[in-house]
């Protein structure tokens, strides 16, 4: 399976990943090689095999539904690049 630079552009858009024009061709080549590596899975007969999402699926546990966290907004927002009055600032979304 070979990916084109247009494919890379559309995947990068899905992942909201900005790429330089000159990186597109090498990425198309690298990703095509990766897809060739994983292609061999298609030859495996997995009829009736239940997909394994997680090694711990049997051990998931529930906790009591009680308040366990207190308000730490200032502490948790401290690493944010831009804040005002406790809100995260982003470029204007609504004109």
């Amino acid at each position: 399976m070979a990916l084109t630079t247009d494919d890379i552009k559309s995947i990068a858009h899905l992942a909201r990943l900005g790429l330089n024009e000159e990186d597109l061709a090498p990425l198309a080549a690298d990703l095509s090689t990766m897809l060739n590596l994983v292609e061999q899975l298609q030859a495996v007969d997995t009829t009736g095999v239940e997909p394994m999402a997680h090694p711990a699926s049997a051990t998931l546990s529930m906790r009591d539904d009680v308040v366990s966290e207190h308000d730490q907004r200032d502490v948790l927002q401290a690493p944010a690049p831009s804040l005002q009055d406790g809100y995260f600032l982003v470029p204007r979304v609504i004109e």
């Binding site: 890379i8 992942a15 994983v38 298609q42 495996v44 997995t46 997909p51």
Partner: peptide, 30 residues
Amino acid sequence: VKRRILIGAYTLSAGYYDAYYRKAQQVRQL
């Protein structure tokens, strides 16, 4: 990191999920 984000976004995207991600999870079981 970019390569892996892109390949991951691709294999999870509509139309490819069963062929890649689901298949890999079945092989994981094997």
